[in-house]
Design a protein around this nucleic acid. Structure first.
Lengths: 393, 393
DNA sequence: GCAATATATTTAGCTTGTATCTAAATTATC
DNA sequence: GATAATTTAGATACAAGCTAAATATATTGC
């Protein structure tokens, strides 16, 4: 129960982590810089760096030659040794596993995506084994596109449209969710030796959005993944919320009032309501993008639908604001590009419903929001466990 | 930003914390036990213990005399040195600061309450200075009752009925909340040198309930403080949720449907609704306990009111379940004793509203729920900072 | 070429830990 | 009642990691 005893070796680990953390963020650093940063003496800093070089996590750069590229500030004194994070020490995979399609993205250890691939499932009712095969295929293609050796993948983040608890287990209390309970973790472990970190897709969206989206750096952030289905990823104080069974943010029956199945996202609602009211210009149910277009062109019926959706989103966001009090709520997912049209309507309504209205924005990440978060999730794991991981090659 | 450099001294701190943590839970421990527990060698364990004795946190017990008290298992070998946590190394204060009354409780470092006192404010609109005076008075009385020296108070936990952010600042965006923004922290620091940890009262209720209430040991726990006002304390993965401004769980306008001010707690609703429907037996509005009594006796009007309240609570709890997915929800506050009558009605309704219904219970802590949590909060601080605190006496 | 400067390397010493050996105190046994 | 067995205490030697101070090295500027 009590953390293992602290040994002198632990000091090195802590200090190595601190140095590594800084080097991940910085382009390059000298011993002197690292001394200032960590408070360690030069001797220790150098020892730590040699250690990290030996493990493959950082590299020592050559002395910059004058007149070569950009000669930096001409500096006096003995030239400093220059250390840099080795972003190619390994790779991570980010997976967006949907009901119909899986997308895989490969990134280096700074998170730069260097390969991507999507594959669709033949049908919804295929056996788990086939599902895994398709996912694996997408991974291999993405790795090939990136020119990355599968043996050098350090972690795989994977997002699924189902609740996932803190230990990465999929909660299967709804038939739909069983689509995602296919034993992916053990399968990829066996096939490639990869460590798979399963997470709910909305949770990953939140990670992605806080990393390189419109919620960059916001510690109390909620992301609504609001395409076909509606799910929330909740971050409080910089940590993801899971709840007992991973169903935090699932919002199954949240809106007990309107009589609409509240797991429906914006796209689904647009379709339903436009079908009910008769299509805006044509006769049948219109697609979400079409309704947004029509509304932009001034179509009254389309505007009415968007207004109704704004009301609904405002209520959902207000519920979240009352219970969680986030600083910001981001709307993401398939409809994110068009959802900007909803913002004024939502923002205007919030003060009616909550005393602590959050800032509401739209995600700039488009359909990459989940893979971005999956990559971030994998990187978090790699960074936390760097000194325990063996680097190949 | 990066944690300070790790020095050899840090090792000792970590190991001392581990030993201290165990000793706090155990009655008494020998060196050998501590070795097994921490994984340290005897030499280190002894060194740590001597250290802790020197700082006053633990004491070494005399050898137990045979035939004295309870002679424990007669053990072979050289008698072990026996170490025990010094629960009287200092004291903590737990304050429940309400709109009308303040209660102070004094506890030793194991959390056993050894003194208590309540004082009421003369009126609602008294100046901040007078408010502080009354609070201070309650503290002094409680300390005197406990025979505790004010100079040996190591921390003060204080709960107020307003949002409090992570740094202990009261959010004042509603007039009512300004009652609690009286500069208590600096005042008590100046008067006694105490460190005051301000928190929202519902949050403290959650801490208390998880500590020694019906939610003991539950990591994903929500406590509804549902007397006159309604507020939630939310714990996820063992941590309190605050949100951006500390308003998490505030639930201001949560129920956008019923047209009832949703910051009203159970007692307030009973009064309102019994007034509206005509008192159950008498003519005027009935008090909450009265209505619960009447319902127990089979009064139809009273039963109808309780049923309506159950419906409302079920909706509130379901909203929480959808967003947070706690394992358990505890109803606490002034009405907790009677609220047991509501449980069947609430539990039965939950599956209609949420796919992940939590266990619902009633708090056994009564009106001590906030002071219990305040004590726990203060103890958490003391335990986390033990090795930085100077013990007096 | 030499001073000034910034960095690198070496050496000694401190803290904390482990490992191992010996001493002490108690119970069990003959 | 002496002796063996058992358990814990204490002491000594050594390793890992850090600091601090002295010394060595490489570059710029005059």
């Amino acid at each position: 129960m009590p953390h293992a005893a602290a040994t002198p070796q632990m000091l090195r680990r802590v200090n190595a982590q601190a140095v590594l953390r800084h080097l991940r963020g910085a382009d390059v650093a000298t011993g002197t810089e690292l001394m200032a940063l960590t408070g360690l003496t030069r001797a220790s800093v150098i020892a730590v760096c040699e250690d990290l070089i030996g493990r493959g996590w950082i590299v020592e750069l050559d002395q910059p030659r004058a007149g070569h590229g950009m000669p930096p500030v001409p500096r006096k004194g003995r030239p400093a040794r220059r250390f840099a994070f080795n972003r190619e020490a390994g790779f991570v995979l980010g997976l967006d596993i949907g009901a119909a399609t899986t997308t895989a993205a490969v990134a280096d250890l700074r998170g730069t995506v260097i390969g991507r691939s999507s594959r669709s499932f033949r049908a919804a009712d295929i056996p788990a084994q086939e599902r895994i095969g398709v996912i694996d295929h997408a991974c291999r293609e993405a790795l090939e596109a990136a020119g990355a050796d599968p043996g050098r993948v350090l972690a795989v983040g994977a997002g699924v449209a189902a609740p996932v608890d803190r230990d990465g287990n999929v909660l299967v209390t709804q038939p739909f969710w069983s689509l995602f309970d296919v034993g992916l973790r053990s399968a990829l472990k066996e096939l490639h030796g990869w460590t798979v970190l399963l997470e709910n897709d909305a949770n990953l969206a939140a990670l992605g959005e806080r990393w390189r989206g419109s919620g960059a750096g916001v510690d109390d952030l909620v992301v609504l993944l609001a395409g076909e289905r509606l799910g929330a990823g909740v971050m409080e104080s910089g940590r993801l919320l899971h709840g007992r069974g991973g169903a935090a943010g699932e919002m199954g029956y949240l809106d007990m009032v309107e009589g609409v199945g509240s797991s429906d996202g914006i796209a689904a609602l647009v379709r339903q309501w436009s079908a009910a009211g008769g299509g805006p210009s044509a006769g049948g149910p219109a697609s979400a993008p079409r309704v947004f277009e029509d509304a932009a062109a001034g179509d009254t019926a389309a505007l009415a639908i968007l207004d109704r959706i704004s009301e609904r989103m405002a209520r959902v966001i207000a519920s979240i604001a009352s219970l969680i009090n986030p600083e910001q709520v981001v709307i993401g997912g398939a409809v994110a590009e068009s959802a900007g049209a909803l913002l004024p309507g939502i923002t205007a309504r919030l003060p009616r419903f909550t005393a602590t209205p959050p800032r509401v924005t739209v995600s700039p990440l488009g359909d990459k929001i989940v893979t971005a978060g999956a990559i971030r999730h994998a990187l978090d794991y790699v960074e936390a466990n760097a000194l325990e991981l063996e680097l190949a090659g």
